[in-house]
Design a protein around this nucleic acid. Structure first.
Lengths: 225, 225
DNA sequence: CCAAAAGTGTTCCGTCTACACCCATGG
DNA sequence: CCATGGGTGTAGACGGAACACTTTTGG
């Protein structure tokens, strides 16, 4: 292969996934203990290295797929981290990605196979290298985007109650909000559809189940919560 | 050096700078013709490669400093671009940065030395590789941030008139806004200070010059335009 | 029958928007 | 004296925030 840029040094390119889930009214992150040196045994985001036959975005998808068995998950670039010594062994530039998944979709067996577990966001341990900063940035981004992008639905089953939706919203923003005002706003959004189905698990009275109509959203992709 | 991640392939890491300036009521970009293969002669953002002794952010600063002679310019990561064949010769992953500079601060001689020039944003030519997409993302980001971060002042001299400020604002948003409403909002912002100085260049009557008081902003860093 | 969650409207206040005229001056 | 850009206020519309009680039903 011709080496056009021969005088410059190459670096390893990694992707790290900040994987958010929602359970018990709490936001959680999927974390594991590092299984390779350097940093073996430290808490860490799940990541992997870029291969030569895939784009960086594809690498992130692949890594997440390896971990969860799920394809086409919501995934967005957070930022790229490139401090000289962020990895003690080699020069590694890492692109952080934020993913949102529905905890219930996630095969519990895979948790153990990959040595990862759900950790509450507000009980986050010290993570390997600059991973804590990656998480901070991801949360900041999430909070900014939650009101202008329909990303919240990725943390819920396809059918959900308004109370669940509100709990996710509150968990991301980190503050409680008024039930009536919240429901008023939701009613104005056409593509959040009420179904005929009733959820009887979380209350005696039962709560109406709603659904995010993606097709309808894409026809008029304006989201304002 | 120990090679921990030896089985993975490395890539070149580049930085590309989307450099915005403001002149004649227009947003402009600093662009040049590529001086190296592949793509020699094509319009291109100004960029460079990551060195082993600098972080990615520092690389972006250095590249911008080489071009403009100015340090500590406003600079933010836009996104990382990593398509497999985005560079026809080698595997290059590029981190795009957005910079805002005051055109008047820029030494016109350096323009020629580096073979770059100011190009109006709405007359943008086809650029090398994925650089057009980088520019699109940078503008989107700029528009989102202009109302919540005091970045607009980086495009102006340290003393400016309200009309100039409004023109920058309109150029970024791409729409005209009401003068009285704009000035009303500005008056509520403490750290945009009116000075005793009068600008007589742009009008016969003269216009009051204002200044962004960074110290005051940092004491209470809330910006809402 | 009672605990627990679902569901529902109104009022108030502050913010955004639309809109038109006088002022000061250099040429 | 007039063309040019600088500077100013108000009224109406709209949207967000605060706020409390009734309903249903499983246990």
């Amino acid at each position: 292969m011709t080496t056009y840029y021969g005088i410059f040094q190459k670096a390893f390119v990694a992707v790290d996934c900040i994987i958010f889930g929602f359970e018990d009214r709490k936001l959680k992150l999927l974390l594991g203990k590092r299984q390779m040196d350097p940093g073996r045994g430290e808490w860490s985001l799940y990541g992997g290295f870029l291969r030569s036959d895939e784009s960086v975005d594809e690498a992130a998808d692949r890594v997440l797929m390896e971990l969860t068995g799920l394809k086409h998950l919501y995934m967005k670039q957070v930022a790229t981290f490139g401090a000289v010594d962020r990895d003690p062994g080699e020069r590694v530039v890492s692109v952080a990605y934020c993913a949102l998944i529905n905890v219930k979709d996630y095969d519990r067996q895979l948790l153990e196979e990959h040595g990862v577990e759900w950790v509450e966001l507000n009980q986050l341990p010290k993570l390997y290298s600059d991973h804590n900063e990656m998480v901070r940035k991801a949360i900041t981004l999430l909070r900014k985007r939650i009101n202008s992008e329909p990303l919240i639905f990725n943390l819920l089953p396809s059918l959900f109650t308004l109370t669940q939706l509100q709990h996710v919203y509150e968990a991301i923003l980190g503050e409680e909000i008024d039930k009536r005002n919240f429901r008023k706003r939701i009613k104005q959004i056409d593509f959040i559809e009420k179904t005929e189905l009733i959820d009887k698990l979380s209350s005696k009275r039962g709560a109406a189940l709603y659904r995010f109509n993606k097709r309808m959203y894409l026809e008029d992709p304006i989201f304002k919560l």
